[in-house]
Amino acid sequence: MDIFGEHPSIPIGIAILIAIYLGACRAAGRKPTRRQAMWFAIAMGAILFTQTELDELADARLFSMHMLQHLMQTFVIPPLLLLGTPGWMLAPWMLSPPIKPIARLLTNPVVAFLIFSAVFVTAHFPPVFDRMCRDENFHIFLHLLFMAAGMLLWWPILSPVPELPRLSYPAQILYLFLLMIPMTAVAAPITLATKVIYPWYTEGAHGWGLTAIDDQVLGGLIMWIGQGTYLMIVFTFIFYKWSQREDRDVSVPPEATAPELRVLRSRRVAGS
């Protein structure tokens, strides 16, 4: 893997991110927890993988790998980044007076959801998508946009800043459920189309010996079933956390003094 090969912007970008991360730590005089550092490292690795390995395959006119790349950019990297970033790193500037109202608006679940859906649906609209394939700068821009929109999307689930809060657990599930609508709206027509939708994939050699149409079906399925399965796993985690919290919330009042307990017991004996 030639990291500095075609796209020097990627290692540079990652380096800048790491520098900002470390700089913020130093400025705040705090260290992220071990877990946060780990998540951040994984996130960097995921970005590197997505933008080099996957990107090469996607450039080899493999639509399916391109879809996988988009899924990584929207569903995997942003949550990792949010998990890896401590709240104290973001809070100072996100809560500073000029930015706070904007941040509040953008991280509002409804707004975040709408922005993400709009970006995702528009980007897969045939003319836009085809231009992305041909115009490298536009391509880079869209991928950055995906990650940014992804950050917004996942904010209500994983917000590290308590002032811009997460949704309640059941609401999180509902929120991600709703996400299935725009995702299906994009993935289903691609999967079920009988013709190649994006002309770029019919021009030139096709990787892996797949035909363009098979590749398209595969890509659609990755997006459709892949995102569905992924969200299902996320639901499981959320549900698990919810159940644990409800378990913890148990406060046990002293039993002997509870009047209804005595009544219940007397009821029981009276009935027997």
Partner: peptide, 9 residues
Amino acid sequence: FATIPQIRG
């Protein structure tokens, strides 16, 4: 139920 119980778990 004569009295609605308080649930603790």
